[in-house]
Computed example of a mutant assay.
Amino acid sequence: MGEFRRAYGAASWHLLLLLGCFAVTGWIALRLAGEPMAGRMLAWFVGAAIAHDLVLFPAYASVDRALGAARGRGGVPSVLNHVRVPALGAGLLLLVYLPGILGLGDGTYLSATGMAPRARFGQWLTVSAVLFAPSALLYAARRLSRRGR
């Protein structure tokens, strides 16, 4: 077993898990191959991968690095996780609901729900503020409690 681990570079369960993931991915690819929208889905998937790897990842890695440089020193609590967690929530909401936030997809939304679409940008900003507010209050409380000591 030690020889397999040395040759493969990880435990045997890792290889089994990876093969299972490839099997599920292959099954999904076969199911989608007959779909009339398969080409469009593939184009969106490739576009999303390129947009993430070439645009989004460098952007949020740079912001994270800048926040890491501004890390608390001398007993001051770090702001890093107080920004990371709500930013992750707001970013995921933006990514998932972007067409609704921008008021796009009028015909699709109307045919799917029977309701007129409306831009939800204000609602997204409100939810984002609700995510950031407790984090900011917790950070302020931590700083004040450290200052009192």
Results as ranks from 00 to 15, higher is better:
P58R: 06
F4A: 08
L131Y: 09
T108G: 12
G148N: 15
A116S: 13
V63F: 09
S78R: 00
A7K: 15
R149T: 07
A7S: 13
W27I: 07
L54S: 10
M41E: 02
V24H: 05
V83A: 06
F57Q: 14
L67I: 02
A141R: 15
A66W: 11
A51N: 12
G103S: 02
A70Y: 06
V79C: 10
G103Q: 06
F22H: 09
D64T: 11
V79P: 03
L104S: 06
G20K: 01
R147G: 06
V85K: 02
R118W: 15
G34Q: 05
P77S: 03
S111N: 13
L110V: 02
G105Y: 02
P134Y: 01
F132H: 01
A70G: 15
W124K: 11
L16E: 11
R120I: 04
W27M: 07
L138E: 07
R118V: 05
A59M: 03
A87C: 09
F57L: 11
A38H: 09
W13C: 00
R5A: 06
R146L: 04
G72S: 03
R143T: 05
R147D: 05
H82Y: 15
A141Y: 10
T113D: 03
G74M: 07
Y139I: 03
G107C: 02
R147M: 10
F45D: 04
W13I: 08
Y109D: 00
A112N: 00
L93S: 08
L30S: 08
Y109F: 13
P36N: 04
G148R: 15
R147Q: 10
G39P: 02
N81F: 11
G2V: 06
S135H: 14
A140I: 10
G114W: 05
E3A: 14
V79S: 12
S111R: 15
E3P: 02
R142H: 14
A23C: 03
A48W: 07
R65S: 13
T108R: 12
M41S: 07
S62G: 15
Q123T: 09
M41F: 11
G148Y: 12
L67D: 02
F132P: 07
Q123K: 13
S78L: 01
A23K: 07
G105K: 05
G47Y: 02
L138F: 12
A133Q: 08
S145C: 07
S145W: 08
H14S: 03
R147Y: 09
